[in-house]
Amino acid sequence: MRDSGKAESTQQVDPRFKDQSFAKPRIVRAVDEQNESLAGYLYSADGVSGSPTKRLAKMYAPHFMPIVGGKRYAWQREIAVHPDYTDRGIGLVLGALSLLERKPNQIATAYVYSDYLPQAGLAMKALGFKVTGNQYVVLGHDGPMAWRERLAAPVGRTLRHIRMIPGASQAITQVRSQVRNNKA
C-alpha cells in the first residue's frame, strides 16, 4: 500500500492529467532588482503520457528506441512576461534558460490558444515550432470554447534559432553566468 502524501496527492489529480507523468520541473524567473517584482515566469517539465507502462518506457527509453523513444517531451507549460516588461527580450531569455535545462534532442512542446492569444503562437512559430495538433477545448469547466494548438520543435534547434537573434548569444551567456553564480 502506498503511503503518505504521495498517495494522498494522487487522489487530487485532475482527470485531465491522469494519464500523464512529469519529471524535472523547473521554474525560470525574471525579477526586477529595483522593486523585487516578478517580471517574467516560465514553468517547464519533462512530460510523458499513456498507460503507466508506456509512461515508464517513454520516461526512460533511449531516444533511438522505436515507438517509445523520443517521447519524453520538454513541455513548456506556461510562460508570461509582465506587460510593463515586454519587448525587452525577457521572454526569449526565459525560454532559452528553460531549454538549456533539457537535452538538445528532446522535443519541446507547448499548447497555445491561438484565437485568444495569437502573439504567443506566432512568437513560437518564428522560433521554428510547428503545429502538431489542434482542437477546440473548453477553458476550464465552464469557460468559453477556445482553439488550442500543440506546437513542437527540437530543443537544440530552437536554441540555435534564439541565438541567431542579434544580441541573444551575449545576453544568454551573461544571464547563464549570473544564474550559475546565484546557484553557487
Binding site: 520541473p25 524567473r29 514553468y43 525577457i90 531569455v93 528553460s98 542579434p166 544580441g167 551573461q174 546557484k183
Partner: peptide, 30 residues
C-alpha cells in the same frame, strides 16, 4: 541591444519546492 534590454533584471532557475506560497501567488498573478 535592439532586441535585449535586461538591465536591472535578475534571472534564476528554481525547482518547485524552492517556491514559497508568496512566489506562487506572484506567479499566478503575473
Amino acid at each position: 541591444s535592439p532586441e535585449f534590454n535586461l538591465e536591472g533584471i535578475r534571472f534564476d532557475v528554481v525547482r518547485p519546492e524552492q517556491m514559497t506560497g508568496e512566489d506562487w501567488g506572484n506567479a499566478a498573478a503575473l
